[in-house]
């Protein structure tokens, strides 16, 4: 049941061209930049120009020559110097980058483990008749769409160590490097566990009751039912949620920018945040592009492994 008219291209092409222009082009540009050392130089030119009066006429000296003044013209010149693989070689010796990779890996690994397990547990918990369930579910959805930067600032007020609502714990939430990374993870867990929960709950409710009743004839153990029946049925959903969360978590920027600004020290500086700072704060565009490509490569490795599974979903 598929049409083959050549009209099809008028439908599809605008979107395809748009995406090509706005992603392939910048990616190519980035790659080009990664092979260059890009420096901004401010050239200050002093020029002698005639002084003008309000009517725009030159002001004349008594001897008839125009009065001159010095005008300073600043011009930013970007210089592109081809440096071959230098930026990529730097990746291997840059300890700040290595720390950022470690921070990102811990953030993604620990964060996703908590979100997936907790999300699944909550979905099992909510997958039964209870009074006011849809209201509880609605409240659980709220964190997903809160502005991530706002969530970061919000948790800043909560993690405030003197007088915040968690101050009584005495935990150095944001001032201790390890705790600060944990706090960043907590915000992500708060925002995205509800997403995992919601999707798993939808998947659980898609499992027909007859099937579960049939299973009850075989075993009374909830654990066996979960492991032998529910988990395999949920597997495709778990894979897609894991993949989506992985892709999003690898990009983490907003929470870091608002909650910890990468600190204390570089303890919570993620790869995205490092690339951003290198490129737009220190204007080391070439190296920033190399960092961005490192991040892209790390994401692609995992996505490629899972690619076949994703493709079958849309086939």
């Amino acid at each position: 049941m598929r049409w083959t008219s050549s009209v099809r291209n008028f439908f599809l092409m605008p979107a395809v061209i748009w995406v090509l222009v706005f992603t392939i082009f910048p990616l190519g540009y980035s790659l080009y930049a990664a092979f260059h050392n890009v420096t901004n130089e401010t050239i200050v030119n002093r020029m002698e120009v005639p002084r003008l009066d309000k009517a725009g006429e030159p002001v004349l000296r008594p001897d008839g020559t125009p009065r001159m003044k010095t005008e300073v013209v600043r011009e930013t010149v970007t210089k592109w110097e081809f440096v071959g693989l230098d930026n990529f070689k730097r990746l291997f010796t840059d300890t700040v980058l290595h720390e950022a990779i470690k921070v990102t890996a811990i953030f993604v690994g620990v964060g996703l483990a908590i979100q997936m397990t907790l999300g699944l547990a909550l979905a099992m918990l909510f997958n039964r008749d209870m009074p006011g369930r849809s209201l509880l579910r609605t409240i659980m959805i709220l964190p997903i769409f809160t502005t991530p930067v706002a969530a970061g600032y919000l948790f800043f007020t909560i993690f405030y160590e003197e007088g915040g609502p968690l101050g009584w714990t005495g935990i150095p939430w944001l001032s201790n490097p390890s705790w600060a990374l944990f706090s960043v993870i907590v915000v992500d867990v708060w925002q995205w566990t509800p997403f995992c929960f919601l999707v798993f709950l939808a998947a659980l409710q898609g499992i027909p009751d007859e099937l579960l009743e049939a299973v009850k004839l075989d075993t009374n153990s909830n654990w066996t039912t979960f492991r032998e029946v529910l988990l395999p049925l949920l597997m495709p959903t778990i894979v897609i949620v894991l993949l989506l969360r992985f892709a999003e978590a690898m990009k983490v920027f907003d929470i870091v920018a608002s909650l910890t600004v990468g600190g204390p020290g570089n303890a919570t500086q993620s790869l995205s945040y490092l690339a951003f700072r290198t490129g737009l704060r220190f204007f080391d565009v070439g190296y920033a592009s190399a960092i961005a490509y490192t991040l892209l490569a790390l994401v692609m490795v995992v996505v490629t492994i899972l690619f076949k599974r994703i493709r079958t979903i849309y086939a």
């Binding site: 930049a33 490129g279 565009v285 592009s289």
Partner: peptide, 21 residues
């Protein structure tokens, strides 16, 4: 899936080119 792959792309990789252009 090609359209989808956009979502996987780290935005920071396109930030600097966009900024310069």
């Amino acid at each position: 899936v090609w359209f989808l792959s956009q979502r996987v792309l780290p935005p920071v990789a396109t930030l600097i080119p966009f900024y310069i252009v």
